[in-house]
């Protein structure tokens, strides 16, 4: 029975928009799926102890590159998004290669990547003549609004299916990494770099592979977010706050299990939405207040996260 559970769950998720189409819950679901994908992208490398605080930067690149290519050169997001993906991957190589080559690890890696998110945020703000700066940016609507060519859809169902597909692909990538040699190499590296190198692991190359993969996925999440929301601002898709938000959601959900980031996204987004809907503007700040306390408690008492701890409990019993 448990073997078929993922397939049944997947079928139920695919079937959902054909029986239930209330716009607001659909919107929340789409947002959850997109962010789940972004968090999954982070956890692909984060689970090996490569804590990056630069993923806000990659997400911002993905979102802005897609939108700018569309508005200025009329490049369809079908080409723009892969370009944005490449840009994210390239940036990852430029920053991460020297990091790994010179063995900048742990704290230092986190702080160097923190500088990266800072740079991306400041560049977007500083080039306000092109990107709208902190006021945000909107990709132009293509004709009537719904267009396959422009990757713009007014219906929620289409977006739901797209987001679901990308999210599932993200999980598949996680799974493939989990089953690959790369995983064993990276686990060895996270235990002991010198030992891994002595055992024949190409430390720099293996770390670079996973970082580029993770950065490209995050850039795709940014592009997707931009196409769905049709509005991006430096504070919602880039910068240090977004990076920390990713780390936080993954830690709460569970960093070592495939669905952990998704659980993290569900919890954080639902918490924010429930507070917003029930308390309105009075709730400003309360969601982050709860997140912050949860994050501290989780790191101290449940470092495996909610889902990770539940699964560990089930296995133990």
């Amino acid at each position: 029975m448990t073997r078929y559970l993922p397939w049944l769950g997947g079928l139920a998720l695919i079937g959902l928009p054909f029986v239930y189409t209330a716009p607001y819950p659909m919107h929340i679901l789409i947002i959850i799926l997109i962010w789940s994908f972004a968090y999954t992208s982070w956890s692909v490398m984060g689970r090996f102890g490569l804590v990056s605080l630069g993923h806000g930067g990659f997400m911002g690149i993905g979102a802005y590159a897609t939108a700018l290519a569309w508005n200025y050169w009329h490049i369809s997001p079908w080409i723009g998004a892969p370009m944005a993906l490449l840009a994210g991957a390239l940036l990852a190589v430029v920053v991460a290669y020297p990091c790994f080559r010179f063995r900048i690890i742990g704290h230092y890696f986190a702080l160097v990547t923190l500088a990266l998110s800072g740079i991306v945020l400041q560049v977007i703000t500083a080039t306000r003549d092109y990107t709208g700066g902190s006021l945000g940016y909107t990709p132009e609507r293509y004709q009537s609004g719904s267009s396959f060519y422009a990757l713009q859809f007014t219906g929620k169902t289409t977006w739901y299916l797209i987001a679901l597909g990308v999210w599932a692909a993200g999980l598949y990538v996680w799974h493939r990494v989990d089953r690959s040699m790369l995983r064993y190499a990276l686990e060895a590296i996270s235990e002991d770099e010198d030992g891994a190198a002595a055992a024949g692991v190409h430390v720099t190359l293996e770390k670079l592979k996973i970082t580029v993969l993770s950065a490209a996925m995050t850039a795709l999440a940014g592009a997707l977010y931009c196409q769905y929301q049709m509005f991006i601002s430096p504070d919602t898709v880039s910068g240090i706050a977004v990076s920390l938000q990713m780390v936080f959601a993954v830690v709460v959900g569970g960093i070592y299990v495939p669905l952990g980031p998704t659980v993290g996204a569900v919890i954080t987004i639902l918490l924010a939405e429930v507070l917003r809907v029930s308390f309105g503007t009075r709730a400003v700040g309360w969601d982050n207040l709860v997140y912050g306390i949860l994050l501290v408690i989780f790191i101290i008492f449940l470092p495996k996260g909610i889902l990770g701890s539940l699964l560990a409990l089930r296995r133990a019993s």
């Binding site: 102890g49 920390l244 400003v284 982050n288 207040l289 306390i293 790191i299």
Partner: peptide, 20 residues
């Protein structure tokens, strides 16, 4: 890195406590 992340949680907490 856990200590760094835990103080990250405190960052969220203090920021939103100030907002509230």
């Amino acid at each position: 890195i856990n200590q760094l992340l835990a103080t990250g949680g405190v960052l969220f907490f203090l920021q939103s406590a100030a907002t509230v």
